[in-house]
Write a protein that binds this DNA or RNA. Structure first.
Lengths: 96, 96
DNA sequence: ATTAGATATCGTTAATCGACGATGAACGAT
DNA sequence: ATCGTTCATCGTCGATTAACGATATCTAAT
């Protein structure tokens, strides 16, 4: 029942998460969100010297990796950490 | 004395390490090296279905990121984990 | 000196990434 | 109904990545 190479899924999962963290701006965003509970997208854009569309793209990557979650409140969107995903990533790293 | 954005270096360091881990083959290589003490390059090539030059390139990336070390023994090269770098990476991850 | 084996490096190609401006969709306020 | 704000998506462009085969280097052995 076990796959031929039992670690290959964990390899892919860790690589995918690492890829999401492989850009300094995304690490910075994650750190921002880890400190305070949640942040409006516009607030994040204000603190990062990049175009709004670029920041939005980084947020999309973090979101698709499952590391952050978006909460829509009217026209605004607030982002927060997804604690379970972050914990999972940390455990994958520890297992190395 | 502290820089304006005190975390930017840690951001860059974590992003760089994550980038080195952002490919499943590199995760797999790191896992192989973490299990046994060291492995010959040829042994790694044998276990991975990619061209020798491609595996060598992945090894170079891991080496330049400081995560592994190469020991030349005659015409052979054996690779092993760089424990301090791995520990540093883990602590950067934990700090998230 | 030649050969064989083991690696690293080079050059190329297709694919992916990072950044941007422009546009579009959703919503609240006027 | 229109407007302004907020955010996501699209199209584009240059830069980077991943993979390969071919080639160069280095050493041990013959």
């Amino acid at each position: 029942m076990a796959p031929l190479r039992e670690d290959s899924e964990a390899d892919a999962a860790l690589a995918a998460a690492a890829k999401a963290l492989s850009h300094p701006v995304r690490v910075r965003i994650l750190r921002m969100l880890a400190q305070r509970e949640a942040k409006m997208c516009s607030h994040i854009v204000d603190e990062i010297p990049l175009a709004q569309s670029t920041v939005s793209e980084h947020l999309r990557i973090l979101r698709q990796a499952g590391l952050i979650r978006a909460n829509e409140c009217g026209p605004r969107v607030s982002y927060c950490i997804e604690p379970a995903a972050l914990a999972h990533l940390k455990s994958l790293m520890e297992a190395l």
